[in-house]
């Protein structure tokens, strides 16, 4: 699905002159004639102030908190350790569950629901009718169906952090291909994994999990803060407690950090954030461990770093994909 098919994208809207000029200057797209026109425009009363507002917004929009609706103490241009500061504030706002749902699982379309989607590399906050919010990570599809009696959402693919408002009358449920997650507390995150496995991580509150095909005799597991659980339709496949869930949620700030993960796994993780295919071929290098930071969107820098640090070669294939081989 391309972005152009979404609402209003083919319409060409009138834009403010200040925005026109700010983008042009930022892109370095100024001929001599443009400079003369820009000069005349700046001389008109009020335009300098409008231009400064555009500068303010252009730089404010670089900070993830601007998009997530977190308390945006915006000091965008001069950042002294701002990234960790901003992240800390977000955590204070929203202890979350992370659910990761892998694979495009086939579902009947939910009726009377709204659908939200991010493309590869995009992250987006969705605020629901009851002021619960869902923060979608790259390449994620979410369907929402609220009724008077229930609050149901479905995570078709991708990864999301749910911040659920308490409502004793209406439990909040997330359906995935592997089963349903029910919230009796506050926030959690979900992620699709391979082989129709779903990973659930709880940062705060209590969550129950009902694998789709589990027998009634088995009680639904209940998770609390600091716990992670993998499940598929048949049941729970692994469970861990005392986990640093917050590190898993760093993607909200556009930053993924690795500390000692195996190289092939790191490459697989990074490739979630780009539609360019990245393949790893060659002898088994899972013994190599990667520590560092990947900033969402900076795949080239990431690959350069890999090639510099490890005995690998990065090759751009004719079809536009990337192949990493051991040297």
């Amino acid at each position: 699905m391309t972005a152009a098919s979404d609402r209003g994208d083919s319409a060409i809207r009138p834009v403010s002159e200040a925005a026109y000029w700010y983008e042009k200057v930022s892109a370095g797209d100024l001929s001599d004639t443009d400079m003369a026109r820009f000069e005349q425009w700046l001389l008109e009363p009020g335009n300098e102030a409008d231009y400064a507002n555009c500068a303010l917004l252009w730089n404010a929009a670089e900070v993830p908190e601007f998009w997530t609706g977190g308390p945006a103490e915006v000091a965008p241009a001069v950042r002294r350790g701002a990234l960790s500061r901003g992240y800390g504030r977000w955590v204070a706002l929203a202890a979350s569950l992370v659910l990761l749902v892998s694979g495009a699982l086939l579902w009947p379309i939910m009726s009377a629901g709204d659908r939200y989607q991010t493309v590869v590399g995009e992250q987006r906050l969705v605020v629901l009718a009851d002021e619960s919010s869902v923060f979608l990570n790259t390449n994620t599809v979410l369907e929402v169906s609220y009724t008077g009696k229930s609050r149901r959402v479905r995570l078709d693919r991708g990864e999301a952090i749910f911040d659920v408002r308490p409502d004793a009358e209406r439990p909040f449920e997330v359906q995935t291909g592997a089963g349903t997650v029910r919230v009796v507390g506050t926030r959690f995150a979900l992620r699709s994994m391979e082989n129709e496995r779903v990973r659930l991580a709880v940062s705060e509150g209590r969550v129950t999990v009902s694998p789709r095909d589990s027998t009634r005799a088995e009680p639904s597991p209940v998770l609390t803060a600091g716990e992670i659980l993998d499940f598929n339709s048949r049941g729970v496949s692994s469970r861990d407690s005392d986990v640093d869930v917050e590190t898993l949620l760093q993607w909200r700030s556009g930053v993924i950090s690795f500390s000692g993960e195996a190289l092939p796994a790191v490459i697989r993780e990074v490739s979630r954030y780009t539609s360019t295919s990245i393949e790893f071929r060659g002898k088994d290098l899972s013994g190599l461990r990667v520590s560092g930071i990947f900033r969402v969107g900076e795949v080239d820098a990431f690959l350069e770093g890999l090639a510099a640090a490890f005995p690998v070669a990065v090759v751009h294939a004719a079809d536009g994909g990337i192949v990493i081989t051991a040297t």
Partner: peptide
């Protein structure tokens, strides 16, 4: 700025995605 933030949701998908990717993801 908070008022402006709520405008982000009213952007078209293309506007939001392009601006986000260009500014946040650089």
């Amino acid at each position: 700025l908070r008022l402006v933030q709520s405008t982000c949701d009213a952007l078209s998908d293309g506007e939001r995605q392009a601006f986000f990717m260009h500014r946040v993801n650089r």
